[in-house]
Design a protein around this nucleic acid. Structure first.
Lengths: 224, 224
DNA sequence: TATGTAAGATAGTAATACTATCATTTAAGA
DNA sequence: TCTTAAATGATAGTATTACTATCTTACATA
């Protein structure tokens, strides 16, 4: 049985839906590769167009600018990840077990999901770590937020906050703790690989150490 | 008695030391204002030059590019902040009281320090919140790190990690907890003002709520 | 057959991110 | 006081970026 995962994206994110054409899919596929390879700052529509054998104008027909494209692929990732979270915590009753699972999902190196043909989740995960926060760290945040561009991120955060609240109804900061866990899962990963003295995960560079740190942080905090 | 605070910066950060000339000081002063006003993306050396009545080439004599200038002012801030931390926790014996003080310093809206004539710490604090992480979220991190451009940040983190270790020698992640506290002091502030549904600090938009959250997080985690 | 839509091809513009050169002012040392 | 070097100002120029516009061709549909 072959299943193709389709993720419905906010229409404000694009000018023309990239999922509905070959060129559009190529744009997503190669954007992810190029941003992963050279970083978002060095990424241009000209280089992207060259890579996929179309023209700059061709790309501009799909996305207003490269920042919108970044928000698109990041939002895509959060939507996909929340689906993973929902799926993998399904049928688990104990919220503590649930939260453990969520932390693991957040902090583990992602493997490519073969059900999504033109998105490489593994590269995307790396992009989220380095470029994710650039989507909202702008002067346009509020406008973009009004357009609901960050909804997938907020939904995931809300989802995790609910699990936290289930663990302990008395705990006063479920949402802030949820966003802290999400952000730190990525931030500590970046530090571990690039500025290791900011962490306690020196040698091994092992995801599990980050998971252990986050588990410790989360459950001590929730339990009080 | 008038005291002028002088902060000695890493020489790799600039081409010509901006502290040692009027033009240099103007560059710092107006960079901070412009980046605060329009954001780092919209900030250019041309606009800066116009603002201070010099030419683009004039600015390039001091800084290789705008990214270096950002690292400069951010590093400046961390150095200044660590000085504040050292000063304000001096003579406090209890590490718990110390850490409380540190969290307060990190999460409180900063006021301009009149001992530094050409740096507005209040604006700088806002810049750190929105633009700070962009200094290291690049493909050049490792090179820049080798040049010790992030030393002030790492020093502050190390300082806080030591206080955490003093609180409880058994706690296994003092450095990661320190970087978490620093990052979250800013991240939660940004969320509170721009994406409030990611936090539990809805209405008031009050620094004290962030402090309460971080206190709770830190001390529960350390105490175990 | 007519019609519309997507895509390819080409061109052009304003702004950005620099580099280079040369003249002038200023400051420091002999 | 004279000399010299360093800092600044003024101007110019280039490659790249971030777009916008237009025109044509391909192709699917009614």
């Amino acid at each position: 049985m072959e299943i193709e995962l389709q993720i419905k994206m906010n229409e404000k994110l694009f000018l023309r839906n990239p999922e509905q054409s070959e060129l559009g899919k190529k744009i997503i596929l190669h954007s992810i590769q190029l941003i992963h390879k050279n970083g978002f700052e060095a990424f241009t529509f000209r280089k992207l167009a060259e890579e996929i054998g179309t023209t700059e104008a061709g790309v501009y027909r799909y996305f207003e600018n490269k920042h919108r494209l970044l928000i698109y692929i990041v939002a895509w990732y959060w939507t996909w990840l929340e689906y993973q979270v929902t799926y993998q915590t399904n049928n688990i009753d104990d919220p503590v077990v649930k939260l453990k699972k969520v932390i693991k999902l957040l902090a583990t190196t992602v493997e490519d999901d073969i059900r999504t043909s033109y998105v490489d989740e593994s590269l995307l995960h790396q992009i989220i770590i380095t470029e994710g926060s650039k989507t909202y760290l702008t002067k346009r945040v509020s406008e973009d937020n009004k357009d609901k561009l960050f909804k997938p991120y907020k939904d995931l955060c809300g989802h995790i906050a609910n699990i936290i609240a289930e663990c302990n109804r008395e705990y006063r900061y479920p949402k802030s703790l949820a966003s802290t866990i999400i952000e730190m899962a990525h931030c500590q990963n970046f530090f571990m690989h690039n500025l290791p003295s900011l962490t306690d995960f020196g040698q091994g560079k092992d995801d599990n150490k980050i998971i252990a740190f986050l588990d410790d942080l989360a459950f001590k905090t929730i339990a009080g």
